[in-house]
Design a protein around this nucleic acid. Structure first.
Lengths: 143, 143
DNA sequence: CTAAGTGCAAAATGTTTGCATACTT
DNA sequence: AAGTATGCAAACATTTTGCACTTAG
């Protein structure tokens, strides 16, 4: 957990740039590879995965596991900034598959509750709420 | 979503029995196959996966996605009973990998909150909270 | 008898790993 | 120069799928 040499490589820069640019979007490892390929600045997928993992560790991006079949997706968080400031939660609709961002103070409370009452330090970055989104629930039948 | 003939097959019975018996435990598809193999009543893994999916649909078992690499795990919920009664949440420790059951009324509140304020119908069955468990956080260095 | 479920094995997919090479410091 | 990151391709693990056969209704 500390064997992090952290060289400043071109590939890492590119990845960070890409995530910074797509801030707010959910990017999969595949998306990254594809995007890079189309940009000419190809990066081996092994490197992509390795750097992604590292960037998550460094808190630069967040990783969200959707369902284990669908590839995990990543999202820019910030470089120096700490996530506490945004505390962004995610909700995944089980019907339409949509991933919803959610900024909510009430929800932030659960983090505290979990800590105070259960000794569990919640990582909102990785936690995804599953359920049915408004459209799918109310709307009725959907795609 | 309704092409469910639902025959009463031996395999299905066996699976339900197994989950009923292991109520409270987290079982992976692999666990099921392995267990069955050792019991002599082998069931093709394709069937296991297919039935597991079905049982989840029927609300007999719940499915929990852990990290996308680790196999998904399942857990008995009940046959006639509806999950609302137990509202069991799960917390996954990112360090030791432990999956913690959690019965908590406070947390149940978030379901309501999500619905009332965000129109999102939470599925506690599939939602897993990620973070660091008490032992790993307080204890210090761990396995 | 007909439709549905089963089982085998192969396929598909996302992610990880080994090793030689290129690059950072 | 020494150590790290990269890249390719093969390896892995889990889950899905095709198809012939068996079973439930």
């Amino acid at each position: 957990m500390s064997t992090r040499a952290n060289y400043k490589t071109k590939q890492k820069e590119i990845l960070i740039e890409y995530f910074k640019k797509t801030s707010g979007e959910h990017i999969t490892a595949g998306d990254v590879c594809e995007h890079l390929r189309s940009k000419g600045s190809t990066i081996g997928q092994a490197t992509v995965y390795r750097q992604l993992e590292r960037l998550v560790d460094e808190g630069i991006i967040g990783k969200y596991i959707i369902d284990g079949v669908t590839p995990a997706c990543f999202e820019y968080i910030g470089e120096g900034v700490h996530a506490d400031e945004k505390m962004c939660f995610h909700c995944k609709c089980e019907k339409c598959g949509k991933l919803i961002h959610m900024h909510c103070e009430e929800l932030e409370g659960i983090g505290e509750h979990l800590y105070e009452h259960h000794g569990f330090t919640l990582n909102p970055m990785r936690t995804v709420f599953y359920g049915i989104c408004e459209e799918c629930a109310g709307g009725g039948t959907q795609a």
